[in-house]
Design a protein around this nucleic acid. Structure first.
Lengths: 345, 345
DNA sequence: TTTCAAATTGCAATCGATTGTTGAACTTTA
DNA sequence: TAAAGTTCAACAATCGATTGCAATTTGAAA
């Protein structure tokens, strides 16, 4: 590749017989430059097609106006929406985003975080991967003086800024809804319990059952059913039980719920009359399946915006100690056909 | 925010009573350092929790091992898949990605590109926004000596590396398929014709009709129907015609096709027997609508990988002139229920 | 005309890492 | 033992922009 020499402030200075400092000041619109020369400098800069070298500038200034984002998967609706939300508000403040995906791998997550530290980003926003078991790499971020914001899947033990969903409440409401629709034997597809979001959803499920004095049936709780395939498999298993459930809450994801729906469809089990199905995340497709799937909206784009605003807000309270702050967003139950039957037993 | 002083190579040097150059060489595993001191340096670096300042390093070295990506929307399946593909292969080579979204705005696209130039990325990968009308900002990228790779929506007039789909062929095959299924009056929902991808798809449509000696009916071609809402609206208009079409090719997107399907469903028009529907992009949801939607897969993840590999390949042919190269990926028609009727007229 | 302050501009250090050159210490060879 | 060659580390310049301080010019006031 041809590597043309880019024009620098020195080139401009030389051409105009002044020093680079004046050029720099003019470019930064400082008022310590004569208006006339400022105009001239700006004009010459445009002529020479000057582009500021952000690397040099950032090195000198000590900050990069860049935020690093680490998510398990970029191409997953929830995460790409959060990113879009973050981007939307950071862009307006002149910030850039460096986006990494951990591919749900703890190893890669560590590498991503380290790269971001090396890049001297001003802030790291992360949702941890499913198999993370220790968080020294995140502690490291804090130690390096970089603002750390966790969202959705957070490490509870780390005292950082957090933006989360109230998973327990959402899950609780979903189960209450099912019970009110007359379902009596509600199964739970749960996600990996090392992630707190899945633990919280389970708690919500148990609380709701308790509230209505319904028994907790162990074989109705299926571990690690968080993909479409695993959801389908779990469903087949559940429906083969001598006393099968009449509703399934796929607390892990809508994909899992989709697996449930497909199995029900294969077995000609009528949804919602014979089987109620509730998912989680409000993926776009849940609206267009037949029947449409009841699910929980996490306000993902709003969540992204909240994260960005939280960062800027903390930035402004300069000097003060970092107080661990948690912002909890209440998700919303979206009732659709897959759980809507007339409310009688 | 507390801003701790990070440890630098000077800190390590000072502690060990040597110069920073030796530290740098040790950290870069140069063989101009004594093995023993190298070990010592590495050990001390780890102790002091040293992290290389990539800014300084990049400034000195003149490249950043960073690729900038500009797409219309991050949270659109096709684009997020391409990004995931790029990320997958660049990550292995130690490259980073800076991702920007133009939000389909020409203005913002220009700003994104300029930011990336300022950031001294080594390469810019872009799919232009729908309302772009001139490409001086892209010419600028080339002038600054930055490798430019266009994909999918490309500016034909710019001689750059390009990775595209053979839209014309895909569209041609889709229409041939419809005709072979016995559809006789095929409408086209077309996208903004300033984007070449939509022009190509239209050409494919026209070519297929010509091949089968079928007339081109002007009122069957609807402009700018590239969202779900516009697709729905277009469909209502088409079906109100005295002589309505018996198939609709939503060449713009699957979202548009979904709009078609919903209107058909509202009007109780049977798909595929009374109306055939074909979309474009193979969005995940096309598989789970009822009926499932025939569409065209663009191999988006593979496309991303191809882009990344193309960059590395060009990098290696150092010194030579940049030859504009175009890689065309042949999309695949995915036949599903929405167009599958017994092949008789 | 002299004095002083304000407005501009220049000088030089700095951010942290890299790298070509130089020189000292050491090893090998004749 | 002396000459030649190696190895290793120090020195200093460099990447491009920023910024505190010093110096100069300008203009106004005395």
């Amino acid at each position: 590749m041809k590597q043309k020499k880019r024009t620098t402030i020195y080139d401009i200075a030389e051409k105009l017989n002044i020093t680079a400092s004046s050029v720099s000041r003019a470019l930064n619109n400082s008022n310590h430059v004569n208006e006339a020369t400022k105009k001239l400098i700006l004009k010459t800069a445009a002529e020479l097609n000057y582009k500021r070298n952000t690397l040099a500038s950032n090195l000198r200034k000590g900050h990069t106006k860049t935020i690093g984002v680490v998510v398990p998967r970029i191409n997953q609706n929830f995460f790409s929406n959060v990113i879009a939300g973050i981007e939307d508000t950071t862009y307006q403040k002149g910030y850039n985003l460096i986006i990494c995906q951990s591919n749900e791998s703890h190893e890669k997550e560590i590498k991503c975080v380290n790269t971001l530290i090396n890049q001297h980003v001003d802030c790291i926003v992360i949702s941890v991967s499913v198999d993370s078991y220790e968080y020294s790499h995140l502690q490291n971020v804090i130690d390096q003086g970089i603002q750390l914001i966790q969202f959705d899947r957070v490490a509870d033990e780390l005292e950082t800024l957090k933006v989360i969903n109230d998973n327990e409440q959402a899950s609780f409401e979903a189960i209450c809804h099912l019970i009110e629709q007359g379902y009596k034997k509600i199964a739970l597809l749960e996600g990996p319990q090392n992630l707190n979001i899945f633990r919280q959803r389970k708690t919500g499920y148990l609380n709701a059952l308790r509230k209505y004095d319904m028994p907790v049936i162990d074989e109705f709780i299926i571990e690690n059913a968080w993909t479409k395939e695993l959801g389908a498999e779990a469903t087949r298993k559940l429906l083969r039980l001598p006393n099968p459930p009449d509703a399934i809450f796929a607390s892990t994801s809508d994909f899992s719920a989709l697996g449930v729906l497909e199995v029900a469809s294969d077995l000609s089990i009528k949804v919602p009359s014979e089987l109620g199905i509730c998912g989680y995340s409000n993926e776009p497709f849940t609206e267009i399946t037949s029947p449409s799937i009841t699910t929980i909206d996490q306000f993902s784009i709003y969540m992204g915006k909240t994260i960005a605003n939280l960062y800027f807000q903390e930035m402004e309270n300069n000097e003060t100690i970092v107080v661990p702050k948690i912002i909890s967003i209440k998700p919303k139950l979206i009732v659709r056909s897959s759980t809507s039957r007339s409310p009688k037993s």
